[in-house]
Structure formats: C-alpha cells, structure tokens
C-alpha cells in the first residue's frame, strides 16, 4: 500500500512536471519586432510579448532611457499588462504612473496596464492615484486614471484571467477590422 502511494505520488509529480509550461526563449529581436509594428494593439500582442522571458526586457524598455524611442517605451508599458503576476512589473508601472515627471503617453500606458492587470492589489493606493490624476491636463492620463478607478471598484465583476471581457460596448465595435490601416 505504501509502495502504491509512493508510486502514485511520483507518477502525479512527473505528470505535473511534464505539463508545466516551459517559457519559450524570446530573442531581443523578436521583442523589438513585435513592439515596433506600425499597428500595435496591447490587448492582442504576439505570443512573444506574453512570454515570461520577455518581461525583464519589457520592463527595461518601459523605463525609457534617454536614447530609447518613446513609442517602444509606451508599448512595452502597455504590454506589461500580460504579466499580471509579476510584482516587479506592478511596482514599475506604479512608479511610472505616480511620478509627475513621466511623459504623458507613457503615464497613460502605465495607468492602462495597472487597470487591466493589477487593479486587485493596493486598491486604496490605486484609488488615490485615480482621484489625483482624474483631472490631469493630459486627456489620455485623465481618461486612464478615471478608468483605473472604475476598474478597482468593479474588480469583483471582472472575469478572471483567461476570460478577457474587456471590449468596447457600443454595438458591433468588437467585430474585427478588415484591415490594419495604421
């Protein structure tokens, strides 16, 4: 009986080990190519950007070094919404969103990602941030700040990860575009 239990334990463990996802290697070039598309939709990124291996690079890009392109930083911050389990990503996005020195576009992207993937943690802090920025002179920052506040409030009604419900509501807008045009 003890042998059977041990065997079962080993069998189940090995099965779990085999079924655990192994993050594929993601190259620097692949991350940059995916981020640099003329069309970039943060809610439908390539698999490369969702890979755990891409997270550190996305975080580095989102920090916006002086010689780095702004559009890559904004897109990287937006893509971090797909790393909702990462504490380092959350703290970076919070830092970007809270600092007044952050350029508006990057701040908007950070607020958007915070609302999309991190609204279930430190709710009081996020609500305070939302309130502080909801009348920000940047239209984009103010809009995402208000949206962040709403996401925190309705957190219990947001579907768990894997069942993305976030979409535009107005009748039919969720249909795919025929062609990219940007």
């Amino acid at each position: 009986m003890r042998f059977l239990a041990l065997f079962t334990l080993v069998f189940v463990s090995s099965a779990c080990a085999e079924s655990a996802p192994i993050a594929p290697e993601v190259s620097e070039e692949q991350i940059l190519a995916s981020l640099s598309a003329r069309h970039f939709d943060p809610d439908r990124p390539s698999e490369a950007l969702k890979s755990e291996n891409a997270r550190a690079r996305l975080e580095a890009l989102a920090r916006l070094e002086p010689d780095a392109p702004v559009h890559l930083a904004e897109r990287a911050a937006a893509a971090l919404r797909h790393h909702g389990a990462s504490e380092s990503s959350r703290l970076l996005l919070l830092d970007l969103a809270e600092k007044d020195e952050t350029p508006p576009g990057l701040r908007e992207a950070a607020l958007s990602s915070l609302g999309s993937a991190f609204a279930d943690r430190e709710k009081a802090r996020l609500l305070a941030l939302s309130e502080r920025l909801s009348e920000h002179p940047s239209l984009g920052v103010a809009r995402e700040a208000r949206l962040l506040g709403v996401r925190v409030r309705v957190q219990g009604f947001i579907a768990p990860p894997g069942a993305d419900e976030s979409r535009e509501r107005d009748e039919g807008r969720d249909e795919p575009r025929l062609r990219f045009r940007d």
């Binding site: 709403v150 996401r151 947001i158 419900e165 976030s166 509501r169």
Partner: peptide, 19 residues
C-alpha cells in the same frame, strides 16, 4: 446579467465586467 461599463468619451463605453 448585469454589466459594468465605463463611458470614456461621447459615444464610447468600455465593458469592464459582468455579473
């Protein structure tokens, strides 16, 4: 079903959650 929506601009609402 109950829906939670955020009106973000004139004529545009985001569906954020349901219950």
């Amino acid at each position: 079903q109950v829906e939670f929506l955020a009106p973000i601009e004139e004529g545009t609402c985001y569906l954020l959650g349901t219950g």
